[in-house]
């Protein structure tokens, strides 16, 4: 990835937080621009075309969640949300509005960089033709042949299990809310039937995770949804 020209917009009203996020990102070679209000953020997003938005939900001029649909109306730039509130409802709202991932304050530089890289990598991958072969752990998925292998042996998945797996793969390294996954895999009518999702996630883990009790790839984001880690 050519980080030298990658522009990141940080939207945060607290100067000290902007400062350390900027220094952490600049050390990695990103170009950082800053906004401390929602209005300035929208102007910069339109004018500077950043490759990533890091958005604080508590802004002085309006609720940060409200910024997301405004941006999404014309741009699919990845949005990483910073939430001071540990309230899961906030995160779900932000994700359902179109955010890609979130970080709960306080967070370390390591977490910030990991999420930033992952989101930018996703964006990069989305621009080219996607490789139909996906591998994680000892599992290989051939999306073209609809075949799944683990340790070289074929794994039998039911149609729903396979649909769930492909939905997760398509959104690798970002958080998917329960609602979103249910709508993608089962249809909009199942948006509240979270027990379906949980049962099928458990079945996928049994079939694909080395230790289903401590999953490494299909990771639970408690109260929010799931994150698929490649």
């Amino acid at each position: 990835m050519d980080a030298a020209r990658t522009k990141v917009l940080i939207i945060e009203d607290e100067r000290q937080i902007r400062r350390f996020v900027r220094s952490a990102l600049e050390d990695e070679g990103y170009e950082v621009i800053e906004a401390d209000t929602a209005a300035a953020a929208l102007k910069l997003t339109a004018g500077e075309h950043p490759a990533l938005l890091i958005l604080d939900l508590g802004l002085p001029d309006r609720d940060g969640i409200g910024v997301i649909p405004d941006v999404r109306a014309w741009s699919d730039v990845p949005i990483l949300v910073l939430s001071a509130r540990a309230q899961e409802e906030e995160k779900v709202k932000a994700l359902d509005a179109g955010a890609d991932d979130y970080l709960t304050k306080p967070f370390g530089v390591g977490e910030l960089l990991a999420r930033t890289h992952a989101l930018l990598r996703r964006r990069h991958a989305a621009q080219g033709n996607r490789d139909p072969l996906v591998a994680f752990g000892t599992v290989r998925v051939d999306l073209a042949r609809r075949a799944v292998e683990r340790d070289g042996a074929p794994v039998h998945l039911t149609p729903i299990e396979y649909r769930l797996l492909t939905a997760l793969i398509a959104n690798a390294n970002r958080v998917l809310t329960h609602r979103r996954l249910l709508a993608d895999v089962w249809g909009a009518g199942y948006a509240e039937s979270t027990h379906y999702l949980r049962i099928y996630v458990a079945r996928l883990r049994e079939k694909l995770e080395p230790d289903p009790a401590r999953p490494q790839h299909i990771v639970t984001e408690t109260g929010v949804g799931y994150r698929f880690k490649l």
Partner: peptide, 26 residues
């Protein structure tokens, strides 16, 4: 409560992040 939670967490976030930036810095 939520104001308190926000107001206390903001400086803590800065504190943790800045200390971290020192360690990871160039």
């Amino acid at each position: 409560l939520s104001a308190l939670s926000h107001d206390v967490r903001t400086p803590i976030t800065a504190l943790v992040g800045l200390a971290d930036a020192l360690v990871h810095g160039k």
